Simulated scan of single mutants.
Amino acid sequence: MKRLQSSLMIIGGFIFLLIGIIFILLPGPAVIFIPLGLAMLSTRYLWAQQWLKRSQRWLRKRAVVIDRWLLNRKYRG
């Protein structure tokens, strides 16, 4: 049973990662699917852990930039 759950987690992680990559090219929520797939794969693979940390840092930095931009826009008028 545990091997089946692990296999399903890996397969699901690769599916979400693939959907996220497709959504980079097509309109869609790639920002949701790529980290989700990496999170699922990071339970098993070191490379996925590293990419997940990179994506989290990148998303955090972008969120700060967007917050600053929105605040400046709000106060301007």
Score class of each variant (00 low, 15 high):
31 V>M: 09
19 I>C: 14
46 L>W: 12
77 G>I: 07
34 I>L: 12
4 L>W: 09
20 G>W: 07
19 I>N: 10
74 K>R: 09
23 F>M: 14
57 R>V: 01
1 M>W: 00
41 L>C: 08
36 L>W: 07
21 I>V: 15
58 W>L: 14
2 K>P: 01
54 R>F: 05
11 I>S: 02
60 R>P: 00
44 R>D: 01
73 R>A: 02
62 R>E: 13
37 G>T: 12
7 S>P: 01
7 S>V: 01
9 M>A: 00
65 V>M: 12
18 L>F: 15
68 R>H: 04
33 F>S: 04
23 F>D: 14
21 I>Y: 12
46 L>C: 06
72 N>C: 09
74 K>E: 05
36 L>N: 08
27 P>D: 05
42 S>T: 05
27 P>T: 05
72 N>G: 12
48 A>W: 02
1 M>G: 01
65 V>F: 13
20 G>T: 08
75 Y>Q: 11
41 L>Q: 07
10 I>M: 03
17 L>F: 15
22 I>P: 05
20 G>H: 09
65 V>Y: 13
15 I>E: 12
74 K>A: 10
3 R>T: 03
63 A>V: 12
66 I>L: 15
76 R>I: 08
6 S>Q: 02
37 G>I: 15
44 R>Q: 04
27 P>H: 09
32 I>Y: 01
58 W>T: 13
76 R>M: 07
5 Q>Y: 08
30 A>Y: 12
37 G>K: 11
40 M>F: 01
60 R>E: 03
49 Q>Y: 09
13 G>Y: 03
49 Q>W: 11
53 K>N: 08
52 L>T: 07
40 M>I: 01
56 Q>C: 15
63 A>F: 11
55 S>N: 07
58 W>E: 09
70 L>C: 06
61 K>G: 02
3 R>F: 07
7 S>R: 03
10 I>A: 03
33 F>P: 02
13 G>I: 03
19 I>L: 15
63 A>H: 08
59 L>W: 10
8 L>H: 00
54 R>M: 04
54 R>D: 02
76 R>Y: 06
67 D>G: 14
12 G>I: 00
15 I>V: 15
65 V>A: 14
51 W>D: 03
34 I>V: 14
42 S>E: 03
2 K>M: 01
49 Q>T: 13
61 K>W: 11
29 P>C: 03
14 F>C: 14
2 K>D: 01
30 A>L: 07
26 L>Q: 12
33 F>I: 06
69 W>L: 11
77 G>Y: 12
23 F>T: 13
66 I>K: 15
5 Q>E: 00
68 R>T: 01
75 Y>D: 08
72 N>K: 13
69 W>G: 04
13 G>T: 04
32 I>C: 04
6 S>T: 02
26 L>Y: 12
74 K>L: 12
32 I>R: 00
56 Q>G: 14
48 A>G: 07
65 V>P: 04
15 I>A: 14
25 L>Y: 06
41 L>R: 08
21 I>G: 08
24 I>V: 13
40 M>D: 03
18 L>G: 15
71 L>D: 09
16 F>Y: 14
73 R>W: 01
76 R>V: 06
15 I>L: 13
49 Q>D: 06
76 R>S: 08
57 R>N: 04
20 G>N: 06
14 F>E: 07
5 Q>L: 09
4 L>E: 05
28 G>P: 11
65 V>G: 09
71 L>A: 10
32 I>T: 03
1 M>F: 00
61 K>M: 05
34 I>C: 06
22 I>R: 14
69 W>D: 02
21 I>W: 08
